[in-house]
């Protein structure tokens, strides 16, 4: 079966639902104390992991599209990518508003002093650039440079697991699993990556 545009519509609707329900869940969990008496760290972790999971799902799309010859799937990547950005924005906003309580000078000194925050910041700035250039009109105007810029999603995919494992105190198993998953997904497109980086 070849997926058609009608399927695509349904699939996208499903993706919106799947990306938004966890946020509704988070809000409910926080409101009902299900996230603990002081849910700040919970929210930062939840949105950070949410962004990373969404990123990994996005990286699965083109291998799946290729393997099953379902070209239209590729058109879901922008939607998923924007949710990566949305979760990352919530994550950053939670850190600044709930943890640092808008102590901006602390935010700047922490960004400069702590490598793991700096790595997160680099990843976030790249995601930001990808998100604003995802508009069709901008995409057309950028021509070839668009693809070049958007190849940096692979850099984000390397930076975020690094940010993760660097942020933990001792619980290294979960980030290690994420590093392995990311490596697998990058390995799956190693020929393409070779081409990009040899250019």
């Amino acid at each position: 079966m070849r997926l058609t545009n009608k399927h695509l519509f349904l699939l996208k609707a499903f993706m919106h639902w799947a990306a938004l329900v966890p946020i509704v869940y988070l809000v409910l969990a926080v409101m009902t104390d299900e996230a603990g008496g002081d849910p700040v760290q919970y929210i930062i972790h939840y949105t950070g992991i949410g962004a990373l999971n969404t990123l990994l799902i996005m990286l699965c799309i083109s291998p799946i599209a290729k393997r099953f010859k379902q070209g239209v799937l590729v058109q879901t990547r922008r939607l998923i990518g924007l949710y990566v950005f949305a979760y990352a924005t919530l994550h950053l906003a939670a850190f600044i508003s709930l943890d640092l309580l808008f102590e901006w000078s602390l935010f700047f000194t922490e960004t400069v002093k702590r490598p793991y925050i700096l790595v997160g910041m680099l990843a976030y700035l790249l995601l930001f650039a990808l998100a604003i250039t995802s508009l069709n009109s901008i995409k057309r105007n950028m021509g070839k440079r668009w693809q070049k810029l958007h190849n940096s999603v692979y850099v984000v995919a390397l930076l975020v697991p690094l940010h993760f494992i660097w942020s933990v105190k001792s619980e290294i198993i979960e980030p290690s699993i994420y590093i392995a998953l990311t490596a697998l997904l990058l390995w799956a497109r190693k020929d393409q990556l070779k081409r990009i980086f040899s250019r």
């Binding site: 799947a18 990306a19 329900v21 966890p22 509704v24 869940y25 988070l26 409910l28 969990a29 009902t32 299900e34 919970y42 972790h45 939840y46 992991i49 949410g50 999971n53 969404t54 799902i57 979960e174």
Partner: peptide, 26 residues
Amino acid sequence: DRRNIVKALGLGAVGASMPSAAQADI
């Protein structure tokens, strides 16, 4: 009540996109 809200959202199918801790909650 809280359970019913979560059930009404049909959260069961969210699966992979959820953080593991949240999955455990569900």
